[in-house]
Design a protein around this nucleic acid. Sequence first.
DNA 1: TGGCTACTGTCAAACGTTTGATACGTGCCC
DNA 2: GGGCACGTATCAAACGTTTGACAGTAGCCA
Lengths: 151, 151
Amino acid sequence: MRQDDEGPVAADALDRVTWALRRTESAVQALKEQRLRPLGMAAAHYSLLMRVHADPGLTGAELARRLNVTPQAVASLVARLEDRGQLERRPHPRHRHVQELHLTDAGQDALRVADAVVAEIEQQITDKLGPEDAARLTALLGQAADAVRET
Amino acid sequence: MRQDDEGPVAADALDRVTWALRRTESAVQALKEQRLRPLGMAAAHYSLLMRVHADPGLTGAELARRLNVTPQAVASLVARLEDRGQLERRPHPRHRHVQELHLTDAGQDALRVADAVVAEIEQQITDKLGPEDAARLTALLGQAADAVRET
DNA sequence: TGGCTACTGTCAAACGTTTGATACGTGCCC
DNA sequence: GGGCACGTATCAAACGTTTGACAGTAGCCA
């Protein structure tokens, strides 16, 4: 009988899906940061602006949930983006002290420029994999995310 | 002629591979943190221990490069793990003030317990996708990482 | 041998995020 | 209508990381 039955610290742990996921995401994020920095925009800013662009009128708390960060982190980013004139906080029609988030025209412009950079990275991956494998990768990632959330 | 020719902020930006990658990685990391916390170990600690387990004798700087973090972050984690008696810093045979990193027996045990949790999450994903799709996902992630690094 | 270069490790400070706690406004149920 | 629960927003403090700068050591070449 082997004595590692309880778990030999899996020698193939570095071949796992979760490990590959971590490495790839890390590489993509690093490249994104690197190319976004010259434009004066952090990756977190881009993600937030894109989210607000997709769902205008979001509240800070709701935005925090969708980005998987805390409301305080969102508030910090929003304050900065508002100072730059890229984001706007409007009073909510029903709730008085709730603020709706909307992109300004300047925010739209900044997002368009930043998105070109991200789209280029996306293209880089799509070129390497081909259209069908890229679509398959996206689908598989979606299934993996579902598997994790179904806990 | 449409005026968005320069880029309409891609309405399908949320269907991108990079976006799916971000969401999935975030979900996996969140679950990992959640299940590792009761064991008194952060995800960053697990990653570091697993790396040292795979390549014993690594230096802090080399470890930092492989984990995509700064040497200072590694030094901070190493100090804590050393205090817990899970990690050991031995003098490098050739370079005098260079420290080699090795797991202690206690470190091995802690890693084994933590790895069981991570392996369970891996299994959760593999069960959902099936063996062949899981392998395909890993392969596609590897190709995507290569595409990004080939810049 | 002397000096240059590259790599490693550590210190100090700034930044961003999380954690914890508090106050305000709304909607629901008794 | 009064009271309770939920969601939102904000403040203060602790934590972890990055950025920037510095000292020590080994390898290389003139």
